[in-house]
Amino acid sequence: MNYYAKRIGQAIITLFSVITITFVLYRLMPGGPLEAMREQMIRDAVQQGQPVNIDQVNRIIELRTNVDPEQPIHVAYYQYLVDIIVYQDFGESIWRREPVFDILFRAMPWSIFISVYSLLIGFTANILLGAVMAYKEGSYFDNVGSIGATFLNSVPYYVGAILMLSFLGFQLELFPTRGRYDPNTAPGFNIYFMASVVHHSILPIASGIIVGFGGTALSMRGNCIRVIGENYLHVARLRGISDNRIALRYVGRNAILPLYTRFMLGIAAIFSSSIIMEQIFTYPGIGWYTFEALTQRDYPLLMGLLIFFSTITIIGILIADLTYGVVDPRAGTSDREAY
């Protein structure tokens, strides 16, 4: 099968699976969200001394979650899919009384902004560090770098975030400790607003860089060392190819290719981590709504979060996948004999 068709197909299947998982969790879990919501509403009605109208309760549930508790499962599933895919209707937040899609769509650019910058900067820094360590293999720099990278790799990213927030944010007051921008600036295309956005984003991005730090550098170092020992490099040197060209085209390119899986996992990891990061930095991106949705038992918002995060991740990975085919012409698998 064509590599591109396969990748796109897989992305679509993944997206469907996520939506199906949310539906299954809504509808098929015993004691799941639908029942919990219904019980809550009946309790509220009883407390306020109003008569309980089951039909009305079901209608409200259908409005908020898009899942009709009355319909047979396959009909409800079809309606749920159509609502989400055709109308982008993710239901209505119980706590905020607003469509889930609007809430998350407004917050999405901020999360993507933080994640993309931390991923790209972190990955580049790691690759450069790994390559330098490999070229100076056995030196003092290499030893210190390896131990440092191993140590950084074992420090949880949120510990880094807490330490930075505590020292750089609260004690030295170099960076703001919460928010996306200074509320005194007018949002728009002006220098003050943009400067405050950058200022507020430095700490979250810095701790996002820590998410994958260390491990990638060590892998890059290992790959480079392996490539440097290959025979074709000796040949290249004998042919008198310049050192720069060897470093970039021969060593660099071949050493980076195996890291591609790690980069893909990094995309998923960094969007996952924003749930924790945005909470620590009180940075109202998508992840920031998780806590609220959890404590308020706001299931439509929670499911919307899962679908949103998955969609962003899937698109990110799809882009990486499609461009990878351009970089590495060997992309694609061979068929094997089945027993």
Binding site: T14, S17, V18, I21, T22, L25, M29, G32, P33, L265, A268, A269, F271, S272, S273, I275, I276, T290, A293, L294, R297, Y299, L302, M303, L305, L306, F309, S310, T313, I314, I317
Partner: peptide, 15 residues
């Protein structure tokens, strides 16, 4: 592998 882990875990934990 593609589905972001923490959001999924949070949803399961909530339920």
């Amino acid at each position: 592998m593609v589905i972001p882990g923490l959001p999924l875990i949070v949803v399961l934990a909530a339920i």
